[in-house]
Design a binder for these strands. Structure first.
Lengths: 405, 405
DNA sequence: AATAATTTGTTATAGCCTATAACAAACCCT
DNA sequence: AGGGTTTGTTATAGGCTATAACAAATTATT
């Protein structure tokens, strides 16, 4: 039972029904791939003639194509329908503190080309460089005409309505306009999103399985959470929903980089894990040469390697992190009761070492048995979740439900 | 951009448009009360003939009625439309540990009759007693035929789909069926909901102002949170969303009734406040004669009265609670970034004494300036938020958006 | 007082879309 | 070759929005 927002609603016109049903049909074809019109009609519980019309339009739009026929026991062989993902392209851009990645991918998220360069911090210069590289990639791969947009992922707060970057501390940006600038230079629609939220979008649109109610937790230098409820990304009133990282779990505890005490992040981020191993406090400044812990060239990946090699201290540091990760997940699960939790970040490389500790800590703090058993799924960093999120940003608009009421 | 749930969707039929637009029209009439067809057509951005049809149907349904005409400068005087709330009744039931309340109200939430009795803990006997009293009230007020349902609020976890009580520790219920039993005995539709969530519903459907994205925090013997996102109550996968109360804010801190340490609830509930004042630990058992703190007849209301009378120790206990309340609100606000926060519970009686402390603690932990300034609105206990929620449970179904896609 | 102007609300009809019936197409089996 | 079966299309009825035209009601103007 949803209350209609009287400030912002959408009346049904005479084309609304068609739009709705077309998207439902498309979603079902996407989900069940190679499916016939007749089967689709049964799944939708509408008559076949309607499906014929819907599918004709989807084919005309280039969203769906007819494949080979299916071998069945009796009767006319059905024509199998497929969602067209191969010849629809997206440029995905991931702007990070150290480097910026530019990927050409198709609508399924399949990587076609990938390049990267040292991040430029001046917005104008970054946009110019991006535009240059995007155009070049599209030209080399002859994907210009079939490219449907550029997805841009930024480590910071994005205004969901206007697309402005409200605040991106890592880049030193505050109220910066890049979306429209890049759109103008490239001549393609540009969509922009925060990193955690983009990861959640990738999971929702390019993942498999039940993905309409979940959270995506990124454990990196900080901790970010993307929340998806009823198939919709939760952005919050001022676009900052999911900031679980600096919630206190131990008010009397250690100091965090943010200045407060006892933040969850200060116990479970990569920096915290490294600091724990090195027996140091978290320190404040970092450069591109040294990491947050102040150690040049010693990363969480190195720590995991040490743990695997038998370094007891390294393993202990990881397991302690796992315990706090579990506690934090319990907080998230108690608060939101998602159907599942996805974990991203470098720590997932050590998942087999820490999964039990995470689960144990979660169980210790979960309010119900059901929530203690919430599936926790680690997603490998090699999948480039942020870049996939950038792709999803564009692809989703082709598959999403039309707004009604 | 919402992803369509391929497991559970709703195709558009040839009547869907009408249903959608009728609910939009009704919502707008409700929001702008005395409004003409012509004005409604302008607000909806549809032509007047459509509105005529929609309104005719709403009048035929008994959802809307025509009032007097409006005095305008030029042209035919418009007929003003009103939402019919006066002659549509709901029975609201609030089952609490000590007593059970039965209220007859109209669709606007206006109280028509109210009675209460000592709560009976056997489900069957409680249902019988409720049925008896509900029928009697409806008869005395000649509201039987115009009563559209019974709203039942329970302190426990409710399965949103089946309406079963999954778990209600206060009542000692586990997987209990009351909804269908009561419905059968009374012969009216019965809707059942958890207390925190019901309070949120009351705020959404019977409150005023922007109420599509908010949380309702009840501070009582425990702490409960009802979450509303995009005009929809968030229930969670196993109906336990909003369990912020036992999230740790201080792992090294005090023991909580739940057995864990450092729960937010253990710092900010009424029991915690009383324990703080009395210099005791939280204790475990309670009877109907003594409260949680183990003191007969010494309640949070007494404590507030003492604070108002100049008892420094009482005021200090309240202000300490306020500080922890602010920290907890910061956690909620960082996590969900709601447009506003409503507070319910006995503590609201002391709001003028503690508001500044709450706000200060919130500001100290909020991640952004915008979130630190989230409006916090105390709702007086005298409004019976739970009973209003029970009313909303029934009334909402008449106004909610139809499910599409 | 008659008439023009203006705004509300209704009627008639065109056009979009689902629902239903009927049918053509394709294929298997006997 | 012909019946049986399932897929996919065509034709048409019925529900709803969109548009045009108009009746109703009231004020301002001549």
């Amino acid at each position: 039972m949803r209350k209609i927002n009287t400030q912002d609603f959408q009346v049904a016109t005479r084309t609304t029904s068609r739009q709705v049903n077309r998207r439902i049909a498309l979603s079902l074809i996407r989900e069940h791939q190679a499916i016939s019109r007749a089967e689709l009609a049964r799944k939708m519980d509408v008559a076949r003639p309607v499906v014929t019309m819907l599918v004709n339009e989807l084919i005309a739009d280039g969203a769906v194509y007819e494949g080979r026929t299916e071998e069945i026991a009796r009767g006319r062989k059905p024509v199998l329908l497929h969602v067209k993902t191969r010849d629809r392209f997206v440029v995905a851009v991931d702007v990070r503190f150290s480097r910026t990645f530019v990927m050409l991918s198709d609508f399924s998220g399949k990587q076609i080309a990938l390049e990267s360069f040292d991040t430029i911090f001046e917005p104008d210069k970054l946009v110019s460089e991006l535009a240059r590289r995007i155009k070049r990639t599209l030209k080399t791969h002859e994907a210009y005409s079939a490219c449907e947009g550029v997805g841009l992922v930024i480590p910071g707060v994005i205004d969901g309505r206007t697309g402005r970057v409200v605040n991106a501390p890592q880049l030193g940006w505050r109220d910066v306009e890049v979306k429209s600038l890049l759109a103008a230079k490239v001549g393609l629609p540009v969509s922009i999103e925060n990193a955690s939220m983009a990861c959640a979008l990738a999971q929702m649109w390019l993942g498999r399985g039940e993905t309409n109610n979940f959270v995506y937790v990124t454990v990196s230098d900080g901790v970010g959470v993307g929340i998806v409820i009823n198939g919709e990304l939760m952005r919050g009133e001022s676009n900052t929903a999911g900031e679980f990282g600096h919630n206190p779990i131990n008010l009397d505890g250690a100091k965090c980089l943010c200045g407060n005490t006892g933040c969850w992040e200060a116990y479970t981020s990569n920096i915290a894990t490294l600091a724990r191993y090195l027996g140091r406090d978290l320190i404040k400044r970092r450069t591109k040469k040294t990491n947050h812990a102040g150690e040049a060239d010693f990363t969480i990946d190195n720590l995991i390697a040490l743990a695997r090699a038998g370094d007891e201290k390294a393993l202990a540091a990881l397991r302690e992190t796992a315990r706090y990760l579990g506690i934090g997940l319990a907080i998230i699960i108690n608060s939101l009761n998602p159907a599942r939790v996805f974990i991203g970040g470098e720590i997932t490389a050590a998942w087999d070492l820490i999964a039990d500790d995470v689960r144990r800590a979660l169980a210790g703090r979960a309010m119900t048995q059901a929530s203690a058993q919430t599936p926790i799924i680690a997603t490998p960093t090699a999948d480039y979740p942020r870049l996939r999120g950038a792709t999803a940003l564009i692809a989703a608009s082709a598959y999403a439900a039309p707004r009604v009421a």
